[in-house]
Write a protein that binds this DNA or RNA. Structure first.
Lengths: 353, 353
DNA sequence: TTGTACGCGTTATCAG
DNA sequence: CTGATAACGCGTACAA
């Protein structure tokens, strides 16, 4: 049998101990060892201690492949995500899901998806990995075809920031709408009356929610929706630039612009500079997400922070709990999280109109 | 057997076909099916076609757990990385490694590591996942203890941007030193003579290489090293700010600052603004990595781009090739990549001294 | 070129 | 509470 580079055949350690050796060392049957390893209840304390000692002594680690084969589950989850240039949301989601998986002894397999979803690719992923469950991130969490496929394959899943909670499903959701409203109120309180709005990518349900919050705030202040102040962006820097140009070219240009994420907000900032507008004196700008760029631009961006990592962690734990056959309390099936307003200099000052 | 939410027991599809059923359908033995699946040579065309038809018809997919158990390998790799706030390098590395794994039918398991490496955690990772090989990213790729552990466990690995290639090992490496030199020459050609330098994190070998390139360029222009112009940073925004303050407080302040990455460069930019210095008129700033912030700051940062994704992809493919027992050509064992200078406005103009 | 039979290290059934 | 023993699905000597 050929082996590759870094060959360590000669100085390799002894092969890992198996359950049989542990059983022999502890003077019990392998089933009992299995019981101890899997924390089943019906084992006497004396036996458990003996077994645990043997496990310790031999450095025993159950073989995941054997476990999977015999148990007909893989002890691993998958996470499906779209990977835009701005990786903030996805990265936070990953952090949370990974933390949960590690804590619960699950492995995590990642599946990046393209803008236009490749269903066959996902199906292949399911076949190759045999994951026990999946975490769906936005906007994939709202894709009916993906959910149908998972259901067909018998793979339970949870949704991170979906458009709507599915009865009997698992989801974590940040309240974008109130946050967006508060952010808009902030601008209104500074005296702004013509506030431009740059929509996010239409596939993301949060785009609509952020718009709704913006409109609601305007309404509460007796302002009517002005379609000319609303531009369709795609959550990307360049689209933020394009929208900003359109909005700022109006003869009655807005005194403030609310971009649906920080990337686009930084695009607005770029265009403001091109046009010689001072921020925030001539133009207030706010973003959303509190991504890394929000602290790096000048002036730094007023924005909204979502607890994505915590949301992902929590929902993943619920998923695993459910995979283990434990009931998940109703309040843990549909979780809601508040967002936090982060005030920085880009919105700062009352408009000089 | 209890199952959790999203229960699809009732409307689930038939369980996946096994090799036995395929063999039956094709009228051959399971060994023959195995041969076809694993692309072994000694199968007649007629038989192969029959088997492939049966596989197609039944939608057969080999069970990875069974494969792993019987074959004593997991068909999966691990990637070890440190996850700083600035995720650019890691993310590019991930992209490359994942592309390679997907192309080669390997799964990828991720192992984020803390600044101070938890060896036991890594060992646990190896035990739980039984990965066939590992990709080490900077700065973990230079950690002797990790490499010793992997060797002891018989897990072959490759290194992404290590300090030095290990004979018989696998590594991909971008030539930081020449790039750093070119970047410094760029500043020198603009007329700068007092160029501050902010070092990267000492754990990263690239930090030393970037310094070396800087010093070499100075020397070629007859300038001597001035310790007062060199500050120790840690690849982070805040450390860039701190170093910039120190450097710019000198009575004879530098007219340009070379920060060892873009994050720190954006920190320098921040401090320049605090001090009322115009960039690039009063101070030229250059970074390294061409991360996302480099395009978002104002002015955008002159920097250096490394082909990290391509490097990661290539080295991972070599690793997999070697895992399969195929020889890896010498030129593919130690790969060198050129960096690319990215000129933007932050360095732009000759110093007004 | 093809097939048989065994083993991989667990989980699970069912009897003690 | 504990233990034989049969799966689980595939790779691989070895034989044909």
């Amino acid at each position: 049998m050929k082996r590759g580079l870094n060959d360590s055949k000669t100085n390799a350690t002894a092969p890992r101990a198996t359950i049989v050796e542990v059983a022999a060392a502890a003077g019990v049957s392998i089933k009992t060892v299995s019981r101890v390893v899997n924390r089943e209840a019906s084992v006497s304390d004396r036996t458990r201690e003996k077994v645990e000692a043997a496990i310790q002594a031999l450095g025993y680690r159950p073989n995941p492949s054997a476990r999977s084969l015999a148990g007909n589950r893989s002890y691993s989850l998958g996470i499906l995500y779209q990977a835009p240039r701005e990786f903030g949301y996805v990265r936070n989601a990953l952090d949370g899901v990974m933390a949960a998986c590690e804590a619960e002894g699950y492995a995590l397999l990642m599946r990046p998806c393209q803008d236009v979803l490749d269903l066959d690719g996902v199906d292949q992923f399911l076949a190759q990995t045999r994951i026990d469950g999946a975490v769906l991130t936005a906007p994939i969490c709202d894709d009916d075809q993906v959910m149908a496929l998972l259901t067909e394959r018998g793979v339970p899943f949870c949704q991170l920031s979906p458009a709507a909670h599915r009865p009997g499903g698992l989801s974590a959701h940040a309240d974008d709408e109130p946050a967006s409203r508060a952010l808009t109120e902030h601008l209104l309180s500074l005296g702004h009356r013509r506030i431009g709005f740059i929509l996010g990518h239409p596939d993301h349900s949060s785009s609509a929610q952020r718009l709704a919050g913006y409109l609601r705030a305007l309404k509460r202040h007796g302002l009517r929706k002005d379609a000319g102040l609303i531009a369709q962006g795609y959550f990307e820097f360049e689209s933020g630039k394009a929208c900003a140009r359109r909005l700022l070219k109006r003869k009655h240009r807005p005194t403030a612009i609310f971009a649906s994420n920080d990337e686009m907000a930084s695009g607005v900032l770029y265009v403001a500079r091109e046009l010689g507008l001072k921020v925030p004196e001539d133009l207030s700008i706010v973003g959303f997400d509190d991504s890394m760029v929000a602290e790096r631009t000048w002036p730094p961006l007023t924005t909204v922070r979502q607890p994505v990592t915590a949301m992902a962690d929590a929902i993943t734990r619920s998923l695993i709990k459910s995979l283990r056959g434990h009931p998940v309390a109703a309040k843990d099936q549909e979780r809601h999280y508040d967002c936090e307003l982060v005030l920085r200099a880009s919105s700062g000052i009352a408009p000089s109109e």
